[in-house]
Design a protein around this nucleic acid. Sequence first.
DNA 1: AATGAATGAGTATTCATTCAT
DNA 2: TATGAATGAATACTCATTCAT
Lengths: 194, 194, 194, 194
Amino acid sequence: MTLPVARSPRRYDPERKSRIVDAAIDVVARYGVAGTTMRRIAAEADVPLGSLTYHFAGLDDLLAQAFQRHAERMSPLYEAHFHGVRDREGFIDAVTDLIHGDAGADPGEWAVAYELYLAALRDPRLRTVTEAWMRRSRAVLERFVDPVTARGVDAMIEGMVMHLTLSTATFDRADTRAIVARLLADTDGPALPR
Amino acid sequence: MTLPVARSPRRYDPERKSRIVDAAIDVVARYGVAGTTMRRIAAEADVPLGSLTYHFAGLDDLLAQAFQRHAERMSPLYEAHFHGVRDREGFIDAVTDLIHGDAGADPGEWAVAYELYLAALRDPRLRTVTEAWMRRSRAVLERFVDPVTARGVDAMIEGMVMHLTLSTATFDRADTRAIVARLLADTDGPALPR
Amino acid sequence: MTLPVARSPRRYDPERKSRIVDAAIDVVARYGVAGTTMRRIAAEADVPLGSLTYHFAGLDDLLAQAFQRHAERMSPLYEAHFHGVRDREGFIDAVTDLIHGDAGADPGEWAVAYELYLAALRDPRLRTVTEAWMRRSRAVLERFVDPVTARGVDAMIEGMVMHLTLSTATFDRADTRAIVARLLADTDGPALPR
Amino acid sequence: MTLPVARSPRRYDPERKSRIVDAAIDVVARYGVAGTTMRRIAAEADVPLGSLTYHFAGLDDLLAQAFQRHAERMSPLYEAHFHGVRDREGFIDAVTDLIHGDAGADPGEWAVAYELYLAALRDPRLRTVTEAWMRRSRAVLERFVDPVTARGVDAMIEGMVMHLTLSTATFDRADTRAIVARLLADTDGPALPR
DNA sequence: AATGAATGAGTATTCATTCAT
DNA sequence: TATGAATGAATACTCATTCAT
């Protein structure tokens, strides 16, 4: 009696589709959308090339699903980051932490976000993803400040992180905090969460 | 006696190299870095394909020069936009105009800027271009406000424009102005330009 | 007590194999042999892809069966078309009708026939199908004319229909009739059917 | 002093584009349109794959040019075949020869013609080629018979050759001649060429 | 018995770059 | 100096077929 030998590995692989999407996110983070190819994703997911086109209608489709998952994964992190915030000072600290990368999001993750923005600029089908993301982000901020201020804070975070990611110069944390604080001056916004 | 033969057109073409760079900027604006190819640039510049590799070391080289020129062309516009500003209120108006696209920069030009940011994220050689650009932009703002505030305003402009470009929702100009104004509250900054 | 669960539809489907063959004929008519794929046939038959290779040895086998069925379906039409013919004039009319498409066969059906001819040119296994088809067609004609004339009439029909299908010019029905009539001149052939 | 060694062979190859078209015709003759691929043509022409897409916009374009050349090459043969014909009997002989393959056209060449017909059935852009071909063929025949008869003879040739190519049965040459002769009965047509 | 998942060979095509002229 | 031709690696994608369930 012979042992059953695994002929072709992983012929049964129920998580595969999901793993491919994760691999796509990784590849975008590392090489950018411009450098993202079916082959690279397949290699990253350790899956034959034909498997990608079996599960996805094409590279565009796969990228769209990757961006969507990334967005859906980032939003809870964003929300969690502000979870324990109790007062205005805590809110300012939280925003400052977010900008300075002390909040769990690594540069690669921000890069994916920017890739998404740029891709959405040219592919309107991605707008639903960016819109949903922005809405959720602003919703978090609106728990602490009025909508107009929330929009300003959101834009400030975006722009600051981009500059910080790009610049070789270092930013002083205290300076960032001062700027953020000023954005909130004389705002009482909605009641802070109890 | 030889007949004057119609040669291939534009055999003498001293502006050619420059025109190619302009064509590259256009192509990046329209198709993004990912969609920018030698062939498209050659077609846009109405120049044979071989001409590109004759004048440039490769696509990377050409892209770098295109980004550089774009940056060098935008900065004076930026400066000009703030030229007539005389007081704090005028400054706030100017920033608001910039964000809302009333300052001459069309979406395509912003798109090239974002493409540059993202490209620089992965290609350190482009950092000199982005650094110079940011330095000049901040220098303009520092004529009106202190360096820390300048950095905040710069980030805010960047983030706001990106959101505005992506979002289908319209932004209220007065709201934007209020946010910008708050960024400057209680700052006296350097003396306003005389 | 178990709930009746909605299974995958049409789990019991005795006609399936036959429906697949019909779908294959349709696909050949619409896309040609070159454009006929397992996937298209499966979609047309509304059947899972794996079902095709379950019922058929492969694409070649399926195509062979499709051609065979098409031939077997066309021959009775051909026969029926000549059924009521009583005399030489009626025969000439019938042939003319056939050529001019007034006999029920639409262009798609002729296209399948031509696809079959061409396929048979390269795949000798299809020759049995084409031979049988030709034999039956000629047998019908031989009820009215001698074998040599029958072959001529058959060839004429084939060539005329092809030209008519391809040409943008219109053919005059009376001209066609005159040509057909001339093919039969001075032939008394076998007795006309009683 | 070293001898100049040929590094990469045939870097200079001015006939290449034309040779590729010829190779395409060959491949169609041997494998049919369905079996014609860029790779096969490239191999047949002994040329790298990239060369095909440099010279042709795509497979369709290349096929169109191949069909066109084939048609333009066949027409003179057709014309030449009837060149020495002096009287009605000679004309009938010539047509009979053509059908029975005694006229220089081998089965592969007829196969290409049928491939063209079928392709034209689905791709209207090929109609210009088929129309021109038919016009020229008929023009040759019209030197001997009236236009209506010419159309009939043309169709008869087409259909006969197709049957003859497909059928395993042999055709009697005398029978063919009798049928052709009957097509011309009682026609005096335009004066036979002197 | 039936099928959804999987596979890898094969497809056309794009492209930056090289090079002979 | 300038370029059209050439090249081969890389691209996304298709597909008939296999196979574990």
